[in-house]
Amino acid sequence: MAQDTDPTGDGWTLASFTAAIHRGGVGLWAWSPERRLAQLDGLCRAFWDTTEPVVGIDALFAKVNAEDRPGMMRDWAASATDPQAYSFDFRIGDGADARWISARGVGGEAGRVGEWVQAIFLDITDRKRAEDAERLLTAELAHRVSNMFTVARALTAIVAREATSTPHFAEDLSQRFGVLHEATALATRSNRADRGDVRLRDLAERILAPYLNGANIAVDIPDAAVAPPDKVNDYAMIVHELATNSAKYGALAGGGTLRLVGRVADRALTLDWTEGGAPSGMPKADGTGFGSRLLKQTIERSLAGRFDRTIDAAGLRFRMVVPTR
């Protein structure tokens, strides 16, 4: 039998107990439905970015992410009278730095002490970000698999147009698929196993190699333009996505022209991807699909850069500018 289990003494002070739950990301709060006020402990004040221990409910609502606010307000109001246990999630703030909070407690009289409804706020930011990353990874995987089938079809069509015999067709297609495999491996390389800067010209030429005989391709990127070890995957994904789209809709679908030009100046890297018009009868990418969203996230968030793209009857013009180290 355990001894000395009576919850008394220095180890069971309110301060030590509160510190323990704070370390678990749990903040204590209470609110008065009648006076529309909230009491916040120290951790909750940090959640809401306020120094005041008592604040108006409406002032807190104003800090909730606009997408989450209507549902959060309904759930919050219901907790004043509904005697059931509740749990609802919302974001404080906007953008990538928004904090995810889960409000949990028991509503109605069971959760009241006098006029105050007591409950907890739990910081679930890390879990939500992990869930978002998993969803993105799953969607990206599905997108990549779909793209690989599209690229395979495009390469098969390119080889078929120029094959002079069945053996020649098989050998050429096998070689191109081999290079495609190498390019894909580069695009997903392990930073731990393969360190060091990679010249962007080498990376682009490797990814574009399977299409060299089917389109007029020129790559002009100086040696100074490099991808650091932790950004190689990002640059490879960008070039691979542009090449895949081109194989679907543009120059790499056969007979077109592609120019990839880079330059480094004023602590910035600029890459210009320019294609001639899509083959007659080919549809054009509208720039709104998952691949476009992936490009936006990679360039703007991971590389802290910007890009613009124009798609019209003349072809495609894509420019990205990212800061260098």
Rank of each mutant, 00 (worst) to 15 (best):
M1V: 14
D6N: 15
T8E: 12
G9D: 09
L14Y: 02
A19S: 13
A20M: 07
A20T: 04
V26Q: 01
V26C: 04
G27H: 00
L28G: 02
E34D: 15
E34F: 15
L40W: 05
L43C: 11
W48T: 10
T50M: 09
T51F: 05
E52S: 12
P53R: 09
A59V: 13
L60G: 03
K63E: 04
K63T: 14
D68K: 08
G71Q: 05
M72E: 00
M72I: 00
A78W: 03
S79R: 01
A80T: 07
A85D: 06
F88C: 09
F88V: 06
D89Q: 13
G93N: 09
A96N: 04
A96R: 10
W100S: 05
I101K: 06
V106G: 03
G111C: 10
Q118F: 03
A119W: 07
T125E: 02
T125Q: 03
K128C: 09
R129S: 01
A130G: 07
E131T: 04
A133G: 01
R135H: 14
L136I: 12
L137Y: 03
A139T: 07
H143Y: 15
H143N: 15
S146R: 15
N147L: 03
F149G: 10
T150M: 13
A152W: 12
T156C: 13
T156L: 14
I158F: 01
A160Q: 01
R161A: 12
E162S: 13
E162V: 08
S165I: 06
P167M: 03
D172C: 11
S174H: 11
S174L: 07
T184V: 11
T184K: 01
L186S: 05
L186P: 02
R189W: 12
S190T: 04
N191A: 08
D197L: 08
D197C: 10
V198T: 14
D202T: 10
L203K: 09
L203P: 06
A204C: 10
P210G: 06
Y211V: 06
Y211M: 08
L212W: 01
L212Q: 05
N216I: 05
N216G: 06
I221R: 03
A224K: 12
V226M: 08
H240R: 09
A243L: 02
T244C: 04
N245G: 13
A247Q: 08
G250Q: 05
A251G: 01
A253R: 12
G262F: 04
A265Y: 00
T270S: 12
E275D: 02
E275I: 03
T288C: 06
G291T: 07
R293A: 12
L294E: 01
R301Q: 11
R301S: 14
S302I: 15
L303Y: 09
G305T: 05
F307A: 04
D308S: 15
D308K: 13
T310I: 08
L316I: 13
R317S: 13
R317W: 04
M320H: 07
V322S: 11
V322E: 04
R325G: 06
